[in-house]
Write a protein that binds this DNA or RNA. Sequence first.
DNA 1: GATAATTGTTATTGAACATAGCTATCGTTG
DNA 2: CAACGATAGCTATGTTCAATAACAATTATC
Lengths: 174, 174
Amino acid sequence: MGAMASRRSKAGDNEGANEEGAPVRDGAAVDHGPLDRRLGYLLRRAQIAVFRDFFAAFADHDIRPGQYSILTVIETNPGLKQGAVGEALGIKRANFVAMIDELQTRGLVRRDPSPADRRSYALNLTAEGTRLMAELHALAERHEQKIVDAIGLETYRALFAPLKAIARMGEGEA
Amino acid sequence: MGAMASRRSKAGDNEGANEEGAPVRDGAAVDHGPLDRRLGYLLRRAQIAVFRDFFAAFADHDIRPGQYSILTVIETNPGLKQGAVGEALGIKRANFVAMIDELQTRGLVRRDPSPADRRSYALNLTAEGTRLMAELHALAERHEQKIVDAIGLETYRALFAPLKAIARMGEGEA
DNA sequence: GATAATTGTTATTGAACATAGCTATCGTTG
DNA sequence: CAACGATAGCTATGTTCAATAACAATTATC
C-alpha cells in the first residue's frame, strides 16, 4: 500500500544519500563518548536506577518517592502549611493540592485548621499515617542498604555532601 | 458565594479537628528529616539543579539535555540505527522518532539509508550538526566547570565511578 | 477601610515516558 | 520459494510530572 510512501516521507529526500561516505556501523556496544564525562547525564541515570528500586520496594504500599518525601516532611515538621511543605520539596503549590488530596483520601494525612490563619491548613499525619511511616522508613533503610552494598559504605557516605552542595548550586537565581 | 463551600469540600469534615492536640507549627526553616539520608532524594535534587544549569547554558542553541545526549551518541558512533541509539540512552523507540524528526528538520542529523537493511536508518550528523557539536561540547565543558567550582575537582572526579555503579544497579532485571 | 499580598484551588498546557498496534522488511524454515 | 516469526520504524494514545495563569477567601499593610 501507500503506507510506505507516507512512512518514509518523514525521513525525506535522502534516498540517494550517503554521498559523503557516511559510516553505517551497526553498534552492538555503543560508545557514550563525552557523555561519560557529563555529571548531569550520570546523575540522571543513577537517579532513575535508584528510583526504580525505590518504586519496587514501595510497590506493595503503593507509595511513590514524591509521596514518601511529603509524608516524611510532614512527620518531621507537624503542623506545616501546604505551601511550606511544597516549597521544601520543590513542588509548586498548584501541583501539591492533588498530592495532598490523595494522601488525605487514603487516610494518611489530615488538613487541620490553622487557628491563626483561616486560609491555610496545618498538615499532620493521621494515626495510620504515623504507623505506615514506621514501615516505610524501615523499607527505605533496606533500600539504602542495597546502594551501600553496590558501592561500599565509605563511598556511599562520601556522596551526600557533594550532592547537597550541587543541589544548592544556583539557588539564589530565581 | 458558595465557592468557599466547594473549596473546603476537598479538605472534608475536619472543621472541628485537631482533637489530638496536633501541632500547628508554622515552619520558616523546614527540617527534611530522614530525607537528608536518602540518596535517591539527593540524587534527584542534584540532578534537577544540574539540568537547570545545563538548560540555561544551552538555551541559546535551543538544545535540551536529551537532544545533546542523542547528538553525542550519533557523533561518537556514526551510522547507528535508531533503535541502537535509543537503547543506549534508555529512550523507547516510539518516543525516539519525534526526537530524531526534530533534529533532522533542524538539519543536524541525517537518516541515511542502511544498505544492508532497508528497514533501518543509519544515523549521522550533518556538516552543520558536526559544527554545532563543537560549540555544544565547549559549552558543556564550561557547564561542568561550574560544578567543579562548586565541589572541588577531587570530589567531582570521585563522583563518576559510584554514579556509574549505581546506574548499573539492577540492570539485569528487566 | 481600601489596597496589596498570601493561601489554597482550578484549569490548562507542555514535556517525558510507556503501551499497543500497524507496515515494511528481514531471517529462517518447511 | 512460500510461510512464518522477528525486527525496525512509525502512529496513536494515555499517564505522569512540572509550569503558568487566573480565581476566591483571607490576611496584612497603609
